[in-house]
């Protein structure tokens, strides 16, 4: 069945609207706004305290900004992947609506993309508030003069695409597994957090883990975001890469991830239909 781009776009929009509603309609909008920034702000505060009070700031200049900016942007990965873990469970088992969406004339890939995009919207609020608070309250040295707008814009767009690609792939895996979606998505986000050097240069990791870091697109994403925001190169092992080389690596890995995500999701979707898992209910 051929579906027009207009229909895909509508699926994406309504998926986004539904995702946003499920996430936000349980309380008053003001309270929701507060809720959505508490987690990211406190996660950053933890790092601020570690830096300011425990270590007393006796470290290389710029390292505080390095970890603060990395942690703020990594919220996208954590929130989107965690949201996807819940999404399959919610749609299939909790609200039991997945089967009805499947019989609608839509492509599930676009629907899940829309649902995931809602988490990007929510994360964006958290990232903006965290960065603003960092500048205003914690002396994070971010200046507009140092911002490389094209590089930062490229980093944000490709990073989000890569995150969505991983998320959709995990959504596919969640379709064919039972009650593992929470843990699997959290584990993947945790591995990326640990290995992509979002709060420390990857050079502090053991050698074998550094090798692993170098094949993760998120390692290059973090480096691009930091160069775009701060203009500095604090990861020694990535410092020799030019901006253009980083852009090339990030583009190639993102395209690779998108292709993998598309085929991976299509395969899982096929297996889920074959195995009768679309209306599977594993809680009791």
């Amino acid at each position: 069945m051929a579906i027009s781009f207009k229909r895909h776009w509508a699926t994406l929009r309504f998926g986004h609207y539904l995702g946003w509603s499920i996430e936000a309609n349980w309380t008053h909008p003001v309270l929701y706004g507060l809720y959505s920034v508490i987690r990211p702000v406190f996660a950053s505060l933890l790092l601020v305290f570690i830096y300011r009070i425990v270590v007393k700031g006796q470290v290389q200049a710029g390292l505080f900004e390095f970890l603060y900016v990395g942690n703020a942007f990594f919220m996208y990965v954590i929130n989107v992947l965690a949201g996807i873990g819940l999404m399959i469970h919610d749609d299939r088992e909790h609200y039991q609506m997945l089967k009805y969406i499947y019989v609608a004339p839509v492509r599930m890939y676009w629907y899940f993309l829309g649902r995931s995009a809602a988490h990007i919207t929510i994360s964006t609020i958290g990232v903006v508030v965290t960065l603003t608070l960092g500048v205003l309250a914690f002396d994070v040295n971010l200046s507009w003069a140092a911002v490389d707008v094209p590089l930062l814009a490229f980093g944000v767009i490709t990073g989000l695409l890569a995150t969505l690609a991983v998320g959709i792939l995990l959504a596919g895996i969640a379709l064919v597994t039972a009650m593992h979606s929470f843990s699997a998505t959290e584990a993947v986000a945790g591995v990326f957090y640990l290995a992509s050097g979002c709060v420390y240069p990857i050079d502090v990791l053991p050698a074998w883990m550094q090798s692993f870091s170098r094949v993760l697109p998120f390692t290059y994403w973090m480096e691009i975001i930091r160069r775009g925001c701060l203009g500095s190169r604090l990861t020694p092992s990535l410092a020799q890469l030019s901006d253009l080389e980083l852009v090339g690596i990030m583009s190639a890995t993102t395209v690779g991830l998108l292709v993998l995500s598309h085929f991976g999701f299509t395969l899982c979707d096929y297996l889920a239909r074959q195995g009768g898992k679309i209306d599977q209910k594993t809680d009791h």
């Binding site: 830096y51 470290v59 390292l63 959290e186 584990a187 591995v191 957090y193 709060v199 420390y200």
Partner: peptide, 29 residues
Amino acid sequence: RELSWVFFEIVLPLLNVSAYVFVYRALGA
């Protein structure tokens, strides 16, 4: 009974904990 849960419940906090250990190492604590 579900061994994958046991695995995840051990590994997930460990990932988080390891990240903070590396934060301290990076800061020279």
